[in-house]
């Protein structure tokens, strides 16, 4: 009885070993392939000029520059750049959005422009606006964000804030 058991088990194991010999480590061929989800690649773009919220906008790979502008806040006066339909790929890291009065397109002016600080005439800007900005710069130093710009412009903020941009070097997020 015991011998029969042993013979049967031995035969079973022997045949199993024979059948499994020659197995390759890449067998089975149609086994499921598992992988971890890669964290999404993100791109950060500095958006300034004729937008609601100047600053850094981070989007995932595959989003277009239009999404970037929408996150920054498009104004009625904003001139959407031509590359808005292109996917964000890291090639453009600073986006200055110009403005339009309905008839013409104008370039935004750097609020920390030396001409403003020295109270010299700037094309397209009334003197009182230049004076307001120069006073602020003289008292508090360079503009670091749109909030400071709007504070400096006071009652003229709504009408003029979108005509200026804060350069990326000077930018600091408002408190």
């Amino acid at each position: 009885m015991k011998r029969r058991w042993i013979a049967v088990i031995f035969l079973f194991v022997f045949v199993l070993c024979i059948s499994l010999s020659g197995c390759k480590e890449d067998f089975p061929p149609y086994e499921e392939e598992k992988s971890e989800i890669m964290p999404p690649q993100t791109f950060t773009v500095y958006v300034c000029g004729a937008v609601e919220n100047e600053g850094y906008v981070t989007v995932e790979a595959g989003e277009t520059y239009l999404t970037v502008l929408e996150l920054a806040g498009i104004l009625p006066q904003s001139v959407v750049p031509q590359l808005h339909t292109y996917p964000v790929d890291g090639s453009v890291t600073e986006l200055i959005v110009n403005y339009s009065d309905g008839e013409q397109i104008y370039d935004c002016i750097n609020a920390d422009n030396l001409l403003i600080a020295e109270r010299l005439g700037v094309e397209g800007l009334p003197t009182e606006i230049v004076e307001l900005l120069a006073d602020y710069i003289a008292e508090f130093g360079a503009f670091h964000n749109k909030q400071q710009l709007k504070t400096a412009l006071g009652e003229y903020a709504e009408e003029y804030h979108y005509r200026f941009f804060i350069s990326e070097e000077n930018y600091e997020k408002a408190d």
Partner: peptide, 12 residues
């Protein structure tokens, strides 16, 4: 298929 943070490619 996506199950949690794992992507599974199967052939069935």
């Amino acid at each position: 298929a996506q199950k949690g943070d794992t992507i599974i490619l199967s052939f069935r």
